[in-house]
Design a protein around this nucleic acid. Structure first.
Lengths: 336, 336
DNA sequence: AATGATAGGGTTATCGATAACCCTAAATGT
DNA sequence: ACATTTAGGGTTATCGATAACCCTATCATT
């Protein structure tokens, strides 16, 4: 690998002069500047960012940790983050925790040892607390994405889970549904709690009693628990509509329903949080509360960089992006 | 940040001893080893991998460059790569070129300056040649994913585009179709050329003449060119089936068809390369040639690491993974 | 002509970790 | 009892780039 010293020797200057040319600092005559640049091109010089990071104590790398790279919500978010990071002159180090605290742990260690300048962190859930505390202990700035973590006060970009859930359930109620099931994510994820709250509130405001038999808590990733679903459907008074707390759960539920010969929406209405992108483009079927995933990422990086560069006020900033109710055809008036 | 020297001082040993403890090299008594480890934990020590990389001349980082992070094919591939990399003790630096040669260029420079140990490279197309040559000039091992690049002889993992295309078109022909259109990717992408070849071969073997009026070349990402599609459909003898060269194109085509009131498959059969994952899970509609994307990534990393560690034979290895014809309901017998 | 200012560029130490080699006291061999 | 090993650990130089400071012609100033 060619180094700054190789350039220096061939251009007949000192290494420091080369460094100054690269960084446009110090006083260098136009003549030597050109000479040095020419040699750099000839030798195909590429600066070693490890060496640079070591002395500068900063890497110009941001880390993006997401929980599921196969989920369109997170890939859109990643695109937003990437575009934004690029614009601001940072590289992006991706990580995918797979909703798994152990993998998340590993990534945190890797992040720390890479000495990234900041982290955009989509936590797996409440137990991510210790990972965030570790980042904080090491003074790495971070912005939380999507899921709040109790015990951590930091910048965060999230959706309005409660309102989004209310909108979806309101919509179902207005279609005449009274027995509405919730297939939720795990309760140690903040968005799942909020979606539950929104669900409960919508029912309450319409004078419908909340029946715990209608509420399932699973994981945002698993979408096949035939037994649970059976119990749900084989009640004396079964649901006529299902609110799935995210896109994957909705797909799983619909598949399970079909397997039993239950048609959507004829026999059962289904709505969910988060859109399905490609799938909805091909077939605008699912009625959803869509979140602006790209904005999540773009906004997150912006907050993070402000934090890193110290241009942000010290208080933690909480950005809440609204979701949009997109009515399609997976839910219909009851009995119609 | 706490360094190896802080540990050394507190444990009353030299920095070298600490290094030896960390790396399990040299001769250290069990007693001091324990003492050092204890201090490392107390001080929450995390090694600085930049410093490490600088002296070791290797980073334990692999780079994965894909062309479209929103395409399920590449996200599955990424998962495979990630799992495989993790297993082999490497970190993964993601990049997303967006099918854009300029972005790709930027990523290549970043890859070089990061001094990654190797690159899993999904090229945007034939013009990626100079980027690959640059990597080679700098002695960075790489494995090409998915798309071959003329002029570069290297390890590569790709699908069998020609055979996959043949299978799809054979299938359509067996359904009775004779006027079959091809909506292809750009011709400077090897897979698009091969899919075209497979298409042409299938026609030829069935004695059907190839009509260039039925062949469109666009990009794998764009999927809305109303004018081109109009010309295609408004021919004297319009197609009865369309073979889209990838998933995105299929979605775009189907949408455009529907907008015109043309039903799929009643009025027009459609098949494509690559599956749609979530979408197909929700609604098994599109008949596709599905590629084992996860295997692409896993296999790619394996080849790459063998290359890096020198355990591979010098010859370039070409792995071709077959695609699977999944027959669903987007194509049907003509006239039925 | 003497003084100071400035342009242009060089020296040296440093970031954190490790390789290669060196040192010393205790253990071992004969 | 003396020469060797060996266990256990320390010294020094190095990776590539940069900050902070220093040096020396040349130019302007009075």
């Amino acid at each position: 690998m060619v180094t700054i010293y190789d350039i220096a020797k061939k251009a007949n200057v000192s290494a420091m002069t080369v460094s100054k040319v690269i960084n446009n600092t110090g006083r260098i005559s136009e003549q030597t500047r050109k000479r040095v640049k020419k040699v750099m091109e000839e030798l195909n010089y590429i600066p070693n960012s490890n060496a640079r990071s070591l002395v500068l104590q900063q890497t110009q790398i941001l880390s993006l940790l997401i929980t599921d790279i196969t989920n369109p919500f997170y890939t859109s978010l990643a695109r937003g983050a990437e575009d934004s990071a690029k614009k601001l002159g940072y590289r992006l180090l991706f990580g995918n925790s797979d909703e798994d605290y152990n993998k998340e742990q590993d990534y945190v260690d890797m992040i720390l040892s890479t000495r990234v300048d900041g982290v955009l962190f989509a936590p797996a859930g409440d137990h991510s607390l210790k990972h965030l505390e570790k980042l904080r202990a090491h003074n790495i700035p971070f912005v939380i994405m999507d899921r709040a973590v109790p015990g951590i006060d930091s910048d965060i970009v999230s959706g309005d889970s409660k309102q989004g859930a209310r909108n979806l359930v309101d919509y179902l109620i207005n279609l005449g549904h009274r027995r509405i099931a919730l297939v939720n994510g795990s309760l140690d994820v903040s968005t799942a709690r909020l979606r539950y709250e929104g669900y409960a509130e919508a029912l309450r405001l319409h004078g419908i009693e909340l029946d715990d038999e209608l509420v399932l808590h699973k994981s945002y990733r698993e979408y096949n628990d035939e037994d649970q679903l059976s119990r749900l459907l084989e009640q004396p008074s079964p649901p006529t509509a299902i609110f799935a707390a995210n896109n994957f759960l909705a797909v799983g539920v619909i598949n399970a329903l079909r397997k039993r010969g239950i048609r959507v929406p004829e026999d059962m209405s289904v709505v969910c949080f988060d859109d399905l992108d490609l799938s909805s483009a091909l077939d605008p079927f699912l009625t959803v509360a869509a979140q602006p995933a790209y904005q999540f990422g773009a906004m997150g990086i912006q907050l993070l960089v402000e934090r890193i560069q110290g241009s942000a006020l010290p208080e933690a900033r909480k950005v809440i992006l609204p979701s949009e109710l997109i009515i399609r055809s997976s839910a219909k008036t009851i009995g119609s």
